[in-house]
Amino acid sequence: MKRVGAYVAAGLAALAPVVAFAGTAHAQTFSFTPYQTSRFDAGTPNSSVVVRNHHGVIISYGDSAIMYHAPSSTLDALGQALFLQNCASCHGDQANGIPANGTPGAYPNLIGLGPATIDFWIESGRMPAVDTAAVEAPRRPPRLTHDQALAIAAWVNSLDPSYPYIPSVNLKGANVADGAALFALNCAACHTIEGDGDALARGTYAPSLRNIPATQVAEAIRTGPANMPRFTGNLSDYQVRDIVKYVTTEIQHPRNPGGFGLGGLGPVAEGFVGLLLGVGLLALVGFWVGERQ
């Protein structure tokens, strides 16, 4: 009781002009390149399966869940030609982010990012970019084919071989329940629990996952494109496989046993349906039941 009295006294005393409002906006400017992907200290993969070519260079690694393959070095020449044609105007002809007559640092340096990163950006249609000044590169139908993407990845990788390679996910034996739990813990905070994505800070957004192939899901998890965090040591290949399984089945093909899924917007859409279709329709019926005098 004594303590409560103290609170009352303090509450009254707080009416004194000693008033402090704390916490407001602290705007801070970032040197921020729109599509930058951070450098990646992957080191040598310690996977259960490691395949080397006759020069001793690792060409594949992984395990029964995901195998990572380097794109074939026979594509290097083709890749360089495609790169000079499609990418060099921004990333420079050495892929180091320095265009021929531009300022270094204005565009991302691609050296050392690993083939999975290059493949993800090209195959998801984000590169070559339509609007290099945009905050987000939206997903589009790819401008280059799968083989062309592999060729470019092969050439960039030949400049400074690095990981991760391009994942090939084996969904057999994946545990969709574990995938659901991991999705809720790691992915839903941005992409929403139904996988629709949503707006983030400063005009960025988390894209919808409704229409993304398994390989790109795994690539995104492993490489962390743009503002997405990268998941490396904290998710095993088996866990990534489970997440990919969950995304490509339950997220992309929800069962919706209860009827139409209402666009996955949850209570916002439900509220509109409830008010317009429910109350609105019934009010119209009431308009018929009653008289208009």
Partner: peptide
């Protein structure tokens, strides 16, 4: 606050979109 934008270095709260500057002591900036 499970939402981390690694290029912007912002931690974002999914409920009411508070944004915290991860590199500056997680001071709220929005």
């Amino acid at each position: 606050v499970g939402l981390y934008e690694q290029q912007l270095q912002l931690l974002v709260c999914p409920c009411h979109q508070s944004m915290f500057n991860a590199t500056n002591g997680a001071i709220p900036e929005f």
